[in-house]
């Protein structure tokens, strides 16, 4: 496990030095929010309509911005044959997958945390601390499932020439079971529901996360082998 942290720390150090992924993800998610808030301009005063539309808009921004990052996650490993070097290290291949999950999770979660205040401003929300924590919990659960599958598929599409096109095509259908409860739970939180009312969605997200993490961890070795 400690070696997964070394891999994540290495990825984060490289990312914070260049900020290539973070900047493009953040700008993309912000643009999505701005475009939607402008096009829904007439509805923004109508709280009922905003409650229905805004959670979906937020997860569209997170998902597509996150995909930008995911498509790059193994690119730094292919430069100079670094993936081969990682695979030569005396660690289980699953540890490499876990390391990549940790770094992707940190980067995407940071992007989400920075995007959230803009979402609150653009869609006229005012959230209390409790609601904010609940929202971050839903973000974490939704993002973990997204990253667990996305990291595996990013490795799977690594050797293909159309990686950037193939990743969304493969990823989006698999993500539906996590996106639907994530959007519903986010809508619930924004509507002021307590955690007790969100148990079915939270349970669904947690099960998805666990199942896909375990499966991806087990099959990662075969995905990165020749």
């Amino acid at each position: 496990m400690i070696r997964s942290f070394y891999i994540a720390a290495k990825d984060l150090k490289a990312e914070f030095r260049t900020k290539q992924m973070l900047n493009s993800m953040f700008i993309f998610s912000l643009l999505v929010l701005v475009v939607f808030s402008v096009s829904f301009g007439d509805f923004l005063g109508d709280a009922e309509k905003v409650e229905k539309l805004a959670p979906g808009v937020l997860w569209i921004a997170f998902t597509f911005a996150g995909m930008l990052g995911l498509s790059r996650t193994f690119v730094m490993e292919t430069e100079n044959g670094c993936l081969e070097a990682l695979m030569l290290c005396p660690v289980d291949r699953g540890a490499i997958y876990t390391g990549k999950i940790l770094s992707n999770l940190a980067i995407v979660f940071l992007m989400e945390a920075v995007t959230l205040p803009f979402f609150i401003i653009l869609f006229n929300y005012s959230l209390g601390i409790g609601t904010l924590f609940l929202l971050l919990l839903i973000f974490f659960l939704g993002t973990f499932g997204f990253i667990a599958v996305g990291t595996l598929l990013s490795a799977l599409t690594l050797g293909t020439r159309t990686r950037e096109l193939l990743l969304p095509v493969l990823l989006l259908p698999v993500l539906l079971p996590v996106l639907i409860p994530a959007v519903e739970a986010t809508a619930g939180v924004l509507a002021g529901n307590s955690i007790g009312n969100l148990v079915p969605e939270i349970r669904l997200l947690a099960v998805y996360d666990l199942v896909f993490f375990v499966i991806s961890h087990l099959v990662f070795e075969y995905v990165v082998s020749d």
Binding site: K13, R17, E79, N80, C82, L88, P90, V91
Partner: peptide
């Protein structure tokens, strides 16, 4: 192939691989 990360320094690269080897 050099097996080195371009965005890390020489020392950071060696640190990372050293730790991966325990």
């Amino acid at each position: 192939d050099s097996y080195l990360y371009g965005d890390l320094t020489a020392k950071e690269n060696l640190h990372f691989f050293g730790k991966m080897y325990g």
